[in-house]
Design a protein around this nucleic acid. Structure first.
Lengths: 238, 238
DNA sequence: AAAGCCCCTTGACCCAAGTCATTTTAGATC
DNA sequence: GATCTAAAATGACTTGGGTCAAGGGGCTTT
């Protein structure tokens, strides 16, 4: 395999370092190649630039190749709700399928590269590739169970429990990418975390401070070091 | 069309009064018949009996034919989170697809009849019936956007706003079934409402009382009459 | 290097909703 | 119709997290 820059648009699915987490995971080698044919790779996105915006026409779903993406909904009154943070290998844009237009927006939280998968082509491919159809069903169903876990978190858990759960989620998703599960850089702002978890920035900040004081974390701006993962898990226990 | 009892297990998809809301909505007549072939209809379920339970093997999704169903998740520590209320024509059990076993449970809130749709048969059928595949994708995507609306509600709205939103949701879903949108019987308990909305029973009860005092509702146990739908919409505005 | 901006942190205060306790009501069972 | 039980309503009190306000540190811009 060639050595590749993480934002390199030339990488194909077969060689992509994320293929063990991304759509190809359920496919045979020749199937991956057929999927690869329909995937479109653009140039890297700068921080804060949109992949798609609310009311854009829905035509594709996306995979993160490098960097990180956040998605958010905008209510009729303009209120913003962050609905997800997506790391390399993760799929976003699925919510657009039910409608002809996106109901959410997706923004790069840092310089990021993404793969665009035109949905109509994916549907066609699914018709002839049972494993892809099944995987795609699973992917959507996984998104549903994720959302339901967030619902439970918001509905039943305290600020500390919510923050602990998010940190552990990022930690374990990092581990899957062979990154450190105990030391990492949060790609999102405190405001994003608060919005996602249904808390104010002040509360998020206070929780980070408290965790630091209690020796659970070492926090330096966005750099996080988990010092007592057991205590976090105790708080989170999901 | 034959006159049928709402719990009658003999009804088929072609004649079912819910077919304009349920899976058949996207299908041609002959396709509905093919769908009908794989649908299994059991005897009516009594109140409080389970359609499936947490950790049951996943093998089918379900449609409500009559009555009403609630779904809930159970966390490792046994905490219950009600994740949805389902009325006739609505589909539930989709979250099981990502896993081999259900992560949720489904219970009849009153005497109910349901249709069981074996998932493997549905997958096969989808492979040869693009409109069914597409509809099913949409259904799952719709579930995702529903969940995300609930996330926003829990994360950003007050107790009054949450309750108003739920009442309006039930009201409009009733209207689609040619039932009254202003007078109806809530199938769920105050405890279920509270659990679903992330509130205590006491708070739900107090909100109902306040709404009644303000002339927005007439409440008699589970019988609800909406007296000022504009005021409710003002509160909900989603 | 000064100025401006944004993000984050911290403190003081307040209120919506939670907790706890009691009463009322409606069915269910005998 | 008397007794039990569960659901619902209401009041008194408490509290976690929101609100408001102020301050600090690290960017970029000039």
């Amino acid at each position: 395999m060639a050595v590749t820059c993480p934002h390199n648009p030339e990488v194909n699915c077969t060689d992509c370092r994320m293929n063990s987490l991304c759509l190809p995971i359920a496919l045979e080698l020749d199937e991956v190649e057929r999927l690869n044919q329909i995937v479109q790779r653009g140039r890297p996105l700068q921080k804060d630039s949109h992949v798609y915006n609310v009311a854009d026409e829905f035509s594709a779903i996306y995979a993160v190749r490098s960097g990180s993406i956040k998605t958010y909904n905008v209510s009729d009154q303009g209120a913003i709700q962050v609905t997800g943070f997506f790391l390399p290998g993760e799929i976003f844009g699925i919510d657009g399928i039910a409608h002809t237009h996106y109901v959410s927006a997706a923004v790069a939280m840092e310089t990021s590269a993404i793969c665009e998968i035109p949905f109509s082509r994916l549907e066609e491919l699914s018709m002839t590739m049972p494993s892809l159809q099944r995987h795609f069903f699973k992917l959507m169903s996984k998104e549903i169970t994720n959302d339901q876990q967030l619902i439970t978190l918001l509905s039943k858990n305290s600020a500390e429990e919510r923050v602990a759960t998010l940190l552990l989620s990022i930690s374990s998703r990092n581990a899957k990418r062979n990154l450190s599960s105990l030391r990492f850089r949060l790609p999102m702002s405190r405001a994003d975390i608060g919005n996602y978890l249904g808390l104010t920035v002040e509360t998020v900040s206070r929780v980070f401070s408290r965790f630091q004081k209690q020796g659970l974390l070492e926090v330096d701006k966005k750099e996080i070091e988990i010092k007592d993962i057991d205590a976090l898990q105790e708080l989170s226990n999901i």
